[in-house]
Amino acid sequence: MSINKLLPLAEAAQRYAGDGIQYASGAGLPVGADAIAFGRELVRQGRRNLHALFHCNTQQLNLLAAAGTVDKAEVGFSGLEGFGFANGLRRVVEEGKLALEDYSNLAMALRFLGGALNWPFVPATTCIGSDIQQRSAFAPEEYPATGKIPEIADPFSGRTLGAYSPLKPDLAVIHVTLADPEGNAIMIGSEWSRFELSRAAKRLVLVADHIVDTDCMRQYPNLVRIPGLIVDAVVWWPFSAWPAASPGVHDVDEAHMKLMNEWLATEEGTFRYIDRYIFSYQTVDAYLNLIGQDVISKLEDSPTRFLLDPFRQWILDRAKVEQLQAENHILKRAA
């Protein structure tokens, strides 16, 4: 057996996510897989002053913003796609409680790539000429903004370009479909910028739908886009992307996407949401009961279900996963 990095969710959040850190997630798209369960845990543990780096907003950032966990954020997109505006995020932005710095989707991917490669900057051929370059929520007095996407000259042609600042988040929490106990991981569906982000982050925690035997990775090494050697911890938490979707595993919970966004629109609704959908559970079982077995069955009946078929034979059963969590060498080392 490979190195065992399995940690319970609460333990991983305690260990790696301190107040005030640059916290990256949302490397899945708004409706696609994001480790939203990790964000619920950050709210439960009362984290404050996080600087969020979300390639795209997700329900996780919507929640963290509404709950006052985040006071600065950088994004390429701040909506919820077909589910409309992110009401929690927009409320605190409009109230001036959260400074939201806008980029584009390519810009965020390139900034993670720049961080991953340890480049001083990344040449920008998009965002230039727009207000994304001219306006900065982090430097509101400056117009046009000079420090956000500064103009540079192409040393070869002399042409004017922009420069993107690289990103190296203190912690990235990345949702993956399958991980082995060491952190070798397979993502089903759009990878979005999880490849770049996994290399840019100083610390990396994976949240997986399923834990698989390492033989799975040996069968499909080309699909392992995140190798265990850059991973700090692996969390198993089923339906961690709920109410968003995890391709191959479950569909988006349309009703809860709407309910969550509606409740986060007000402060009072946000308290109600936290009470009902965060403080109401501690264990995986309680969490799954909260979603409801009938809902789970419906969401699992996904047209993408077949995508998981080649991997099913290596999925470890729950007892084995919990045994590995209990034997975790990180915890043992700490003790």
């Binding site: 390429g76 997109f77 909506g79 505006f85 409009e94 980029y103 584009s104 390519l106 810009a107 994304i132």
Partner: peptide, 17 residues
Amino acid sequence: TYTPPKTRLTGAGGAND
């Protein structure tokens, strides 16, 4: 001076690119 918008929309996403 940059001030928060009266109504925040979705941002650029990939449309800028």
